[in-house]
Design a protein around this nucleic acid. Structure first.
Length: 463
RNA sequence: UCCGGAGUAGCUCAAUGGCAGAGCGGGUGGCUGUUAACCACUAGGUUGGGGGUUCAAGUCCCUCCUCCGGAGCCA
């Protein structure tokens, strides 16, 4: 059977009018009376449903009238203009074959459900309008990211998921082992003998591909990673997940300002792409999820992002006509309330905050000439907060080595990372974009669990 | 992990310490153009678990669990 896709019908309704077509999909709603009934059919190809009209002349009219939501059917009929106001065309059924009847305890109703409830049925929620739209946008956004980098000559690098060092310093890690948990082998001191583990050393799931991707940056000049990362933090917020995807570009012969240019270009490009490629889904978000969405995204696409230093941010916050719970003092990290004030109230658009005190930032960030700050940047956006964190990397061998020692890290763990500074080092920079946070921003969804197909958070890995 | 809130029918929510309810969904019947269709009838409960106070607990107390929001950590 050759099926016409609902998407094709909606894109060119005139071409299909009066034509015989066959469609196959799932029932979203049924309404029927004695001699007439309506089915809204979604076939997965398009956000909107096709209305199917069926009449008592169908041999299985009664059976069709009793079909349950989610049942799958195949319909053959003629496409006609619809007298109803809500759809341009409809399919007048000549035959309806029931492919798979849904049992009557299907939990999704024809009304709004709470996102909390839908999380408990993650296997069924893609069939709702909201999640259908979210995961469509997720796919488009991923493609847009590849498109952006590929068009600019970036090489896509697959950095490892299992990492051999716990030295990346970006948070608690998940251990990877084949040792028997109840009875692990011990060495002479009674400590667990990881020599006998699968990799003959301690291994974990990666928390960032950055250190590894820098190696390829020194060969390909412009590179990026895009893959899953894992944090075993006991974080319980709407913005944190234990497993999430991250995009980490790295550019050689570049400084922090070029890094920010890249981040700004990328954000604008991928948002624009989704607006163009998913108009129905975006319209839905703007109507039902966040009425200021279009306004906000247009603002991002067309404005120049603000760029201020951390020191300037502290000054601005001290002058703010708002009381903060946490004190402002040079050297302390900015709190969520401070970041929100800057990006939401003061500037009302994305803001780069740069040149943070070196004491609160990672070892690999390049120390500025003042010896107090590092060439780091965070991109703050209204509603979501920090969406990107990046920096120019310390390319000077001695400086990097001293930073590692000063921070009490084990020099041995970084031997290959330091080698990059011994063999043809160059200034370079990069950043990490939280993929789910980008989806949240572009859809207006407020919880990371609702933009991740199968979210992993503390105490939650059901699906 | 800390602070706050919540947990009652499949879902969304009511119920002054005194008979556990409604709307939606399900079932049955009706209805010729519906749009979260409509109308009538009907079934459906270990009030998150455990303990306590009381003549009497969904309601008050203790404890544990789970979820939500905020914070910290970060992307």
């Amino acid at each position: 059977m050759k099926y016409t896709l609902v998407k094709e019908i909606f894109q060119e309704p005139q071409a299909y009018l009066t034509q015989k077509v066959a469609v196959a999909g799932w029932i979203r709603t049924v309404r029927s009376s004695k001699e007439l009934g309506f089915i809204e059919l979604n076939d997965g190809s398009f956000f909107k449903n096709l209305q199917v009209v069926f009449e008592a002349s169908l041999p299985n009219f009664e059976e069709v009238g009793k079909l349950t939501i989610a049942s799958s059917i195949e319909v053959q009929g003629t496409l006609v203009e619809s007298p109803g106001a809500k759809q341009p065309v409809e399919l007048k059924a000549e035959s309806i074959e029931i492919v798979g009847l849904a049992e009557n305890d299907y939990p999704l109703q024809k009304k709004r459900h709470s996102f909390e409830f839908l999380r408990t049925i993650a296997h069924l929620r893609p069939r709702t309008n909201t999640f259908f739209a979210v995961f469509k946008v997720r796919s488009l956004l991923a493609f847009a990211i590849h498109k952006f980098f590929q068009e600019r000559g970036f090489i896509y690098v697959h950095t490892p998921i299992i990492t051999g060092s716990d030295a990346e310093g970006a948070g608690e890690m998940f251990r990877v082992t084949t040792l028997e948990l109840g009875n692990p082998p011990r060495d002479e001191q009674g400590k667990i003998d990881f020599n006998q583990d699968f990799f003959a050393k301690e291994t974990n799931l990666t928390v960032s591909g950055q250190l590894e991707v820098e190696t390829h940056c020194m060969a390909f000049r412009k590179v990026y990673t895009f893959g899953p990362t894992f944090r075993a933090e006991n974080s319980n917020t709407a913005r944190h997940a234990s497993e999430f995807w991250m995009i980490e570009p790295e550019i050689a012969f570049a400084d922090l300002s070029q890094d920010m240019d890249l981040a700004e270009d990328m954000v604008k490009y991928i948002f624009q792409y989704v607006m163009e490629q998913a108009p129905e889904e975006m319209e839905f978000f703007n109507t039902w999820i966040d009425k200021t969405l279009f306004q906000r995204l247009e603002n991002v696409i067309h404005s120049n992002f603000e760029r201020i230093t951390y020191s300037q941010a502290i000054e601005l916050l001290k002058k703010a006509d708002q009381k903060f719970e946490f004190p402002l003092e040079w050297g302390r990290d900015l709190q969520t309330e401070h970041e929100r004030y800057l990006t939401e109230k003061l500037f009302g658009k994305p803001v780069f905050v740069t040149d943070y005190p070196k004491a609160i930032k990672a070892f690999y960030m390049r120390v500025n000439d003042d010896d107090k700050t590092v060439a780091a940047m965070d991109l703050l956006v209204p509603g979501v907060g920090e969406i990107i964190g990046g920096s120019q990397r310390e390319e000077r061998y001695e400086m990097l080595k001293n930073r590692i020692i000063d921070l009490g890290l084990n020099l041995q763990d970084y031997w290959w990372y330091l080698d990059l500074r011994r063999y043809g080092t160059v200034p370079h920079a990069g950043f990490g974009l939280g993929f789910e946070r980008a989806i949240m921003y572009v859809t207006g969804m407020e919880n990371i669990r609702d933009v991740t197909p199968f979210p992993r958070t503390p105490r939650n890995a059901e699906f």
